[in-house]
Design a protein around this nucleic acid. Structure first.
Lengths: 228, 228
DNA sequence: CCATCTAGTGAACAACTGTTCACAGTGTGG
DNA sequence: CCACACTGTGAACAGTTGTTCACTAGATGG
C-alpha cells in the first residue's frame, strides 16, 4: 500500500523512557504510525487535503483512534513541523562537523545539503510545500522556525572572516538570504531527484555559483546602521 | 457568499471577439465565473483540495456545467497559471515604464512590485503556493513560466551598466536570484497585508536592502565561462 | 486480586464528493 | 423556417468523508 518508502519505522524521534509502561510505549507506537503514515501520504498530497481516514488507514488503525492522539489534522501537522526542523538542525550540525577549510566551505556545505535533502526528502518537501499552507497554524510555525534557524545560522556566520564585526541585523539579512537559497535549492533538488536524476550535478554547480556570488557581495557590503 | 473580493468581474482576459455569437459570449462568461470562483476559493484552499462542486457553486452554475469547460480541475489550474503570468508580465511592463533614474531603480522597482502584489493578491498567492503543488502539471507549468520570466528579466538586465557584457548564463543566474527574491517577497507581502499591515514598510526596507546587496555583488563578480 | 483507567474498535450518522445521464432551451447555419 | 449543435440543468449513482458512541481488552496501581 505504501509505494515509496522502504523502511518506514526508521525514524529516530519519540524517545520512550526506559521505565515507561507497556501502555505508554504502545500509545507512542501508534502515534508514530500515524505520523509516518501522514508523512508518507504527504508525498503527493498537501496537508489541507489530508484526510483523517486516509491517515489512519495508512497507519493501520481505526479512524477513531486518531482522536486519542490529535484533536485535528492541524495538530499532527504541527508535530511534523517540529520533526522536520529537528532534521534541519541535524543538517547544520553535520555542516559544522565537516572540517572547514575556508576555501572549500562552499562546496562542502553544498555537498552536505544535497546529501541531507536526499536522505530526508519527506521532511524537506513538507517544509517547502507547507511554507505556504492554507492551514494557518502550520504556516506560521514553519515561518517562525525558519526565522529562528536563520538567526542561528547568523551566529555561525559571525565566525567567518569578512563578516565578523558585522552588526547583527546585517548578519541576519545575509543568513536569511542563504536560508531562502537553501529552501529554493531543496525544492530544485527534490524535483531533480524524482524527475531527472542526471541533472543533479547541474543544480549543485548552480547553487555553488549563487553562494559564491553572495559571498562576493559581502566583500563590497558596507553595513548600515539603518533600523531593522 | 464571496467574502473577500469586491469586484470579481473586473478581470481583463478572455477577449471575446467582436463578431462572436451570443453562444460563444455566454459560454466564455460562465467560464470566467468558474475561473473567478476558483480563484476566490483558492484564497484559503490549495488547488489539490479544490472540489469541482465547490467551484461550480461559487460560480453559480450546476456541477455538470464544469465539464463543458474543463475536463479535470487540473485544466482549470493551468488556465489560472497562464492568467497569473499574464499579470506578472504586466508587472514587468509597469516597472519598465517607470522612468529609470538609475539611482532610484531599486526603490522604484520595489514600489512597483508592492503595488502590483497588492492589486493582484490572488494571482501572486496562487503562483507562490502552487509552485509546490502536488498537481504535477500545474507545478511544472509554473516552474517553466518562472524560468521564462527569468530569461526575459535577464535581457532587461543586460541594459544596465555594470552587468552589460556579462555572458548570458551569468545574467540568467542573476535574474533567477532576483526572481526568487521577488517570489519570496510576494509571499512576505501577502502575509503582511492580511496579518500585520503596519509592518509593510519593514518588508519594503528589507527587500531593498537585499536588492542593494545583490547589486553590490555584481560589481565584484567576475563572470566565469563554466558551462551552465 | 480487583477496581479503574484508557488505547483502540467497529458501527452508525449525515454530509459531501466526482461523474454520468437524459433532457430542455436556445442560438446558429442552411 | 427548420433541423441541428451545444450550453446548462437537475436528478441520480456509488463512494468517501469527519465525528460520535458504546464497547472491549488489557495494563496499572493500590
Amino acid at each position: 500500500m505504501s509505494r515509496h518508502r522502504s523502511s518506514r519505522s526508521s525514524h529516530t524521534g519519540e524517545r520512550t523512557r526506559e521505565h515507561d509502561g507497556v501502555r505508554t510505549v504502545d500509545k507512542s507506537r501508534t502515534r508514530r504510525a500515524l505520523l509516518d503514515g501522514a508523512l508518507d501520504l504527504l508525498r503527493d498530497r498537501s496537508l489541507d487535503n489530508l484526510g483523517i481516514r486516509e491517515v489512519t488507514r495508512a497507519a493501520g488503525v481505526a479512524p477513531a483512534a486518531f482522536y486519542r492522539h490529535f484533536q485535528r489534522i492541524d495538530d499532527l501537522g504541527l508535530v511534523l513541523v517540529e520533526e522536520a526542523f529537528a532534521t534541519l538542525r541535524g543538517l547544520m550540525r553535520e555542516a559544522r562537523e565537516d572540517a572547514q577549510d575556508p576555501d572549500r566551505i562552499i562546496t562542502s556545505s553544498v555537498t552536505v545539503l544535497v546529501d541531507h535533502v536526499r536522505a530526508h526528502q519527506d521532511h524537506y518537501r513538507f517544509i517547502a510545500r507547507e511554507q505556504m499552507s492554507p492551514i494557518v497554524s502550520v504556516k506560521l510555525a514553519i515561518r517562525r522556525e525558519l526565522r529562528l534557524f536563520a538567526t542561528e545560522l547568523a551566529t555561525d556566520l559571525a565566525r567567518l572572516p569578512g563578516v565578523d564585526r558585522w552588526p547583527t541585523p546585517d548578519l541576519v539579512m545575509l543568513a536569511e538570504m542563504i536560508v531562502a537559497l537553501m529552501v529554493d535549492t531543496s525544492r530544485r533538488l527534490l524535483d531533480v531527484f524524482e524527475e531527472a536524476p542526471e541533472r543533479e550535478a547541474e543544480v549543485v554547480a548552480d547553487v555553488e555559483r549563487r553562494l559564491r556570488f553572495l559571498a562576493l557581495g559581502t566583500t563590497a557590503w558596507t553595513p548600515r546602521t539603518t533600523a531593522r
